[in-house]
Every structure is written in C-alpha cells, then in structure tokens.
Simulated assay, not measured.
Amino acid sequence: MKYRRLGNSGLKVSEIGLGSWLTYGSAVEKEKSISCIHRAYDLGINFFDTANAYNKGAAETVLKEALQDYTRSSYVLATKVFFPMGAGPNDRGLSRKHIIEQCEASLKRLGVDYIDLYQFHRYDHETPVEESLRALDDLIAQGKVLYGGVSEWSAAQLTDAVHIAKEKNLRPLISNQPIYNMMVRYIEKEVIPVSEKEGIGQVVFSPLAQGILTGKYKPNEQIPAKSRAANDDTNKWITSYLNDEVLTRVQRLSDIASGLEVELSQLALAWVLRQPNVSSAIIGASRPEQVEENVKASGLEIPASALDEVEAVLKEINDFVPIW
C-alpha cells in the first residue's frame, strides 16, 4: 500500500480507503463488515470513512467494534455532519449547535477520543460559512477533531471557505470528498484546479461507479443475483449507470484492462489515482476478497498508450449524469 499526503497537511492516508456508505450497518451483516474492515487494515488501508447519517449512526457503531483492537494512532478515522439525524429543526445542517452536538454523538458511537477528519457532508445554504468554520475550529482547538474537510463542495464554495478561514485566522480545510470515477468527471474542470491552489486534497467516493466499473454488469444481460443492483436497499444509486450505452463502453474498458493483465476495478482505481490531487479513492466492500482485489490498484501505473485508449472510450459517453 502506498500513502499520500492529504492536501497540504502532514496527514498521510492510504491511496485506497474503505468507506461504509450503503454497506456497514445496513446492507452488509455485521460479521462480514468487520471481516472486511479487518482485512483492509491488514492490507495497509489506514483511512476509514463513515458518516453519522449512514443508517442513523449504525455504520459508526460497526467501525467502533471493528477498530477497537487496533492502536488508535495507526488509522485515520473520518466521519461527517450535515444530513438530518432527527425530526427537529436543528437536527440537520451546519449550524454551530448541530455540528457540536453531532461531533459528540459520533465520538460516542465510534468509541474514540478524537476524530481525525471531520467533514461537512454537504454545503449548508442556510448557515453562514463562518459560523460552521468557527465551530469546526473550536472542535480542533479542543482536540476532539484533528482536521477539517468538506464533501461535494463546488469550486466557488471552496474558494469562499478558504478566504474566510484566512481572514478570520481559522484552521484551513484540508480535504474535499466528491464523487469521481471514469463516468463522472466534473471535478476536473474547476474543483481540482482550485483545490491544488488552496492545498485541499480529494478523497473521492464511488470510484467504481457503484460497482459498474468491476465489469460484473453486462449489456443485454440480467442483473447478477446478490449484486448491489439487485438489492432494493441500495440499487437506487446505481440505476442511472445501468443502460446499454454505458455498459457497452464498460466492456471496452474491460478489454483495455485485460490487455494490461489487471482487473477492470484495478484499472478504474488507478485511473482515479492518476490525479495527484486525489489523496485516496474510497471503496466499498461486502466481502474481504473485494478489498484484496482493490488494494492492488495502489501504485499501479497506467501506460500513456492505455490512458489514451481509455480517454477515447470515455469521450463516447455523452452527458452522463448519475444520481447520488
């Protein structure tokens, strides 16, 4: 496993991270979840990402049980705040009240004294950015959080936050967590250039496009049983990828991977990691074997000729906008 600095910070995270969205605490039973997390740790993954909103805290609880036997300093634990955690008007968003209360709740569920990376799960249009940043800065000052980040913020929103932090002498954000994969590349236009300028690293989610970029889904064929697309609890996030145009292109990408003697999933992850501004690609896994396959993408160099072939295939996918 290789490691990269997260933005301009001194924090180093594994090129492959393990996330818990749609898996741990929900679709994957606890024993299998813990097995995946343990295998990931054994293989050198040190970056574990979750959120308070993942099954209302259940994912954080699974991580607590899985990581409790390891030295706290040996892994980087990330969680998030923004989405509703109750029915009350203050049970959501990025107000100081919600941030502080949810940080305390996450610390209890995770069973730790501090969170390495605390992220704003989305942008809050109803709360002043300065209020949110000051609350985060206070948590860092108290030692309950070590670093701050965001998820799915636009280039303009990142720029605004950076300027406010500098003006008010607040600790800088070090990360952004956007969707990024071969099918969804919007961050390349503005988010990555701004992030490179301001010292913000990307920890990207859905690098395998909800499993589409494993090659398991074929054009004009039935959805495989027990796959994510066959699960009514998780398939709403994958349906936009399931069309013959996309799946036909995926088969061509699979041929490129075969020519390199790697799995399509490994090619897709290495393609994401070709971007220096990407610090980690966050995978999801329901079986330890999936973790074992995906970690092989760390350090994989894609030849320039293969990158050109990939680009030629991707240019044929027009205006693809997934649901997430």
Rank of each mutant, 00 (worst) to 15 (best):
L43H: 05
S195N: 15
I256R: 09
E316A: 09
R122C: 08
C103T: 11
Q142I: 02
I200A: 09
D116R: 07
A141S: 11
Y70D: 03
G143R: 01
E263D: 13
N318K: 15
P172A: 01
R96H: 10
N181P: 02
Q119M: 13
K168D: 02
S95G: 13
N8V: 09
A105W: 12
L133C: 08
I192K: 11
E263G: 15
P322Y: 03
T248D: 12
S175G: 04
A59V: 03
G19L: 13
V28N: 00
T127N: 01
L260R: 03
V246I: 12
D124E: 10
K216T: 08
L110H: 10
P322M: 04
G148W: 06
V28Q: 00
H163N: 14
R171G: 03
G284Q: 04
T127S: 09
Y123K: 13
E126F: 14
A105G: 13
R252M: 11
K226M: 00
I99C: 08
S20G: 01
I16S: 02
D319R: 07
S33E: 02
I200Y: 09
Y180S: 11
A230L: 01
D113E: 09
S280A: 05
L260Q: 07
I212L: 00
G149N: 11
G149I: 06
T79G: 04
E31M: 04
D232M: 15
A58E: 15
V310W: 05
K236L: 10
T248Q: 12
D137M: 00
A270L: 13
L110N: 07
I164D: 00
R185P: 05
L267F: 08
A155S: 07
L18N: 09
S9A: 07
S73N: 15
G149Y: 06
V184Y: 11
T234E: 01
K2M: 10
L264F: 02
V321T: 11
I179C: 14
S106I: 08
W153P: 01
